[in-house]
């Protein structure tokens, strides 16, 4: 069975699916990703499906599961690069990619992950660099 590689780029895990996955390969990817999220502490997962010429109900369900699993493991998943024909087919198939964030390309996906993180933890940056103008520390003695 072939395996889909998972790359770590900074704080993000990047999965670029380049092969026509068998169902077993798709399930394996789900497990591998969950393990890598925990092992690396990454808060973002980007799944690039540019190379996929179809997404059927099995792969669609896998993408939804990955999004839910990563959420539980404190990571945000963004699916990027869906082809127009794939999007049209998915809708007609009746698949709603529940809970999945999407972006047009990897770059926008990375912005989305960063934004989602910033919304959730607005003071992360200030705490991290310990700057004096932190609103939390200056307003309350």
């Amino acid at each position: 069975m072939e395996r889909v590689p998972i790359l770590k780029i900074g704080e993000i895990l990047l999965v670029s699916i380049q092969l026509d996955m068998s169902d077993q390969t798709a399930l394996q990817l789900q497990e591998d990703l969950a393990e890598r999220i925990v092992a690396t502490g990454c808060h973002g997962v980007i799944i690039d499906i540019t190379a996929l010429d179809i997404v059927d109900s099995f792969v669609g369900r896998m993408l939804s599961s990955i999004a839910s699993i990563s959420k539980v493991l404190d990571a945000e998943t963004v699916v990027v690069g869906m082809r127009p024909a794939v999007a049209i087919t998915l809708v007609e198939l009746g698949l709603s990619l529940n809970g999945i964030r999407t972006a047009l390309n990897v770059e926008r996906g990375m912005e989305l992950v960063a934004d989602a993180r910033a919304d959730e933890f607005p003071y992360d940056d200030e705490l991290a660099d310990g700057s004096d103008d932190d609103p939390e520390t200056t307003s309350s003695p």
Binding site: I54, T89, E92, L93
Partner: peptide
């Protein structure tokens, strides 16, 4: 689009 639909149905 028709190729994509047919391959998806076949899958």
């Amino acid at each position: 689009v028709d190729q994509t639909k047919l391959v998806t149905a076949a899958s």
